[in-house]
Nucleic acid binder design. Structure first.
Lengths: 338, 338
DNA sequence: TCCTTATAGTTAAGCGCTTAACTATTCGAT
DNA sequence: ATCGAATAGTTAAGCGCTTAACTATAAGGA
């Protein structure tokens, strides 16, 4: 496979000149450029990127980091959705995406991940970073790797959606429909900081109506469909009078709906259910799911754009994206006879 | 950040000795090893991987290639499922995963992808490769990059599931339940070679029972839930007597079920529906979906294991994984009064 | 006319690591 | 005792590219 030196020989110039033409930096004549480009084409030359990385310190690789914890990472359509936004920007910029899925312990991310951070392979990274246990973006910041955090483990250079506002909208929607017997399906507060913000938003909305939020029965799932079913079962066993369930993600909402159906009850006629995230199957679900849209592809795309600004030394502001109620068929006014 | 040279100075040996200790190649004494390891720890040294790649030709990077075509890649849980198997093996081997999503045209994969192939960044690759339009693994084979193909664009070094057998099982299941008024929801044969094999398997099973397969009405979706709904609508409008739908993936099956429900009909009492793939939401769907399990995580994992064998120069056999009927609640014997 | 800056291209050092070839010593077999 | 192979560690070349510093010429302003 051809090297820069081969191209230089064929074009009749030095390797430095070929390098200048490739990077379009001063100086060379148009005639020289054409000679070099002709040689590149004839030899089907591509730069050896390890050599370039060693010489220049630039790799054209971006790491996308998803901590490997809780509900298996690889069953969450939210992850794919976010990746979609990131991939689109990186492809446009000609960068390669390196996918990293560090396991987290009390001591922090695993060693393979830390070695990646020290490897000199990364021009930058985008990290989904909401697990209370440990931060994956903090070790990158400590090593001066340009890093955009999607989530809460950052004081600057982050993209978030307005989880607090989303929680408020979810609760307000249910309250506006007249519901007061409300169950909440959440997750352990050791799983995801974003969900804590959703909960505080929900609390704000309830207390603004003079309601005792702590009186709402709560169950903790683990994001999965199955856990949504199980926790709906537990909640409704103990509180058969509930007329609404607020679920902190769509998959638990779908599980809850399945369980409710299995009781012979109707959604939303007998019990309303609202989810969160607006994953791709939410709209097309048997009962199209009322949910909070949290802009997964947009946050991926915005994070990538901010990262390239950071890499290029431009000033970067953090971004909080708005959330938005998407009212579909799984919620309805509370029935008068219940 | 420390280099090998810094480690050598602190340990009082040469850089060659440090390199021998790191790679555990002859010769060095145990005393020398301890001195080097102590220096590595004290300096928090990690190898500069571009430099190592340039010197040794080895990068510890595997590319995972998913062609970016048809139903958006990032809404297919099948992709995440397969990635899960690949990631597990690569993480265990200490390799990094580079995600590549080439756009395909008549001329082949896009230029960013081809440049990646020539970049010297890859120790090997795993390519999902079933789009008739162009192969993504063929350019890699032409460049002698160790490559395992998941799919049909390969004559060797591939992992496949038994799509033909899976198609047969799907059709046999429906026929065993007594159905003869059968609709088929497939996709354009320009989208995915694997589905053509499923169709030929279905044909085989039908013709083995003396049935005229071509008499079965067929519709073409695009893998998505929405297309499943739309094509079910079209089929049932033209053939209201259908008692079964065979769908070539789960998401179209889910869409079909939603449509059928919207007519006020029951699944499976009025119409049976079978899907294919067994994506994570198939089991937990409102009507747990009868489907064909095609081992996405296993094929990812097996592909990764074969790739490391290939990289290490071991002989590699191609693998065809069995498919398996998973009978759940969306299929039932044909009703007598229909 | 002269001087400074810009243009054009080249030479060569170095990025950090691997490893072949080297020097020196030790060990085992004859 | 001798010789060949193994052991231990070192020197230094080179992987392929970037780019600082260089040489040479041209151009523009005072």
């Amino acid at each position: 496979m051809a090297t820069l030196s081969d191209v230089a020989k064929l074009a009749g110039v030095s390797t430095a000149t070929v390098s200048k033409v490739l990077s379009n930096t001063p100086y060379f004549t148009e005639e020289t450029r054409l000679k070099v480009e002709r040689a590149i084409k004839e030899l089907n030359y591509s730069p050896n990127l390890p050599a370039r990385a060693l010489a220049s310190g630039r790799t054209e690789i971006i790491a996308v980091v998803f901590p490997y914890i809780y509900d298996p990472l690889f069953t969450d359509p939210f992850v794919l959705h976010m990746l979609q936004g990131i991939e689109a920007v990186c492809h446009e910029r000609g960068y390669n995406l390196l996918l990293s899925t560090p396991r987290l312990t009390f001591e922090g991310p695993d060693d393979l991940y830390l070695r990646l951070l020290r490897s000199h392979y990364l021009d930058g990274m985008i990290a989904l970073d909401n697990v209370p246990l440990a931060s994956v973006s903090e070790p990158a910041r400590q090593r001066d790797i340009p890093c955009i955090t999607i989530g809460y483990h950052a004081t600057h250079h982050y993209v978030r959606t307005d989880d607090h506002g989303g929680g408020m909208q979810a609760m307000q929607h249910i309250l506006d429909l007249g519901h007061r017997q409300i169950g909440i399906i959440s997750v352990s507060d050791s799983l995801n900081i974003a969900l804590n913000h959703r909960l505080t938003g929900m609390r704000s909305a309830a207390e603004a109506r003079g309601l005792n939020y702590d009186a709402f029965p709560t169950a903790q799932g683990d994001f999965s469909v199955d856990s949504g079913m199980a926790e709906a079962a537990a909640l409704l066993a103990q509180h058969p009078d509930l007329t609404a369930l607020v679920c902190l993600n769509d998959r638990m909402a779908m599980g809850a709906i399945q369980y409710i159906r299995s009781l012979g009850k109707r959604v939303p006629e007998d019990i309303s259910v609202i989810g969160y995230d607006d994953i791709p199957t939410a709209a097309g679900f048997a009962t199209p799911l009322t949910t909070i849209f949290n802009q997964a592809p947009t946050s991926g795309q915005v994070a990538a754009q901010l990262l390239f600004d950071l890499i290029e030394g431009k000033p970067v502001q953090s971004v909080v994206l708005p959330t938005q109620l998407v009212s579909r068929a799984s919620t309805a006014p509370v029935s008068r006879e219940s």
